[in-house]
Computed example of a mutant assay.
Amino acid sequence: MTAKKQAKSAAEEGTRAYCGPTIPGVAKQFTFYRGGVPEALAEAQKQHPVLGGLIVPLEQLPEAMEQLRKKTGPIYALYLKAQARN
Results as ranks from 00 to 15, higher is better:
K8G: 03
P62T: 09
A11Y: 06
T2S: 15
K81R: 10
P62A: 10
K71I: 09
P49C: 03
A82I: 04
Y33F: 12
P21M: 03
E59R: 13
Y76L: 12
R34K: 13
Q67H: 09
K71R: 15
K81A: 01
T22F: 00
A64W: 04
E43T: 14
V56A: 10
K8S: 12
Y76V: 05
P57N: 10
G53A: 07
Q60M: 14
V50S: 07
P57A: 13
Y18T: 06
L68A: 11
E66V: 05
Y18C: 01
I23L: 11
G36K: 06
L61W: 11
E39W: 03
A11H: 03
K46E: 11
Q6L: 12
R16M: 05
I75T: 14
H48Y: 08
F30I: 03
R16P: 01
Y79M: 11
L51M: 04
N86R: 15
A40L: 08
P74A: 14
A77G: 13
G73R: 04
L78T: 08
K70Y: 01
Y18L: 02
A82H: 06
V50W: 06
Y33T: 00
P38R: 08
G35Q: 06
A10E: 01
P24E: 02
I23V: 10
E63I: 01
A17C: 13
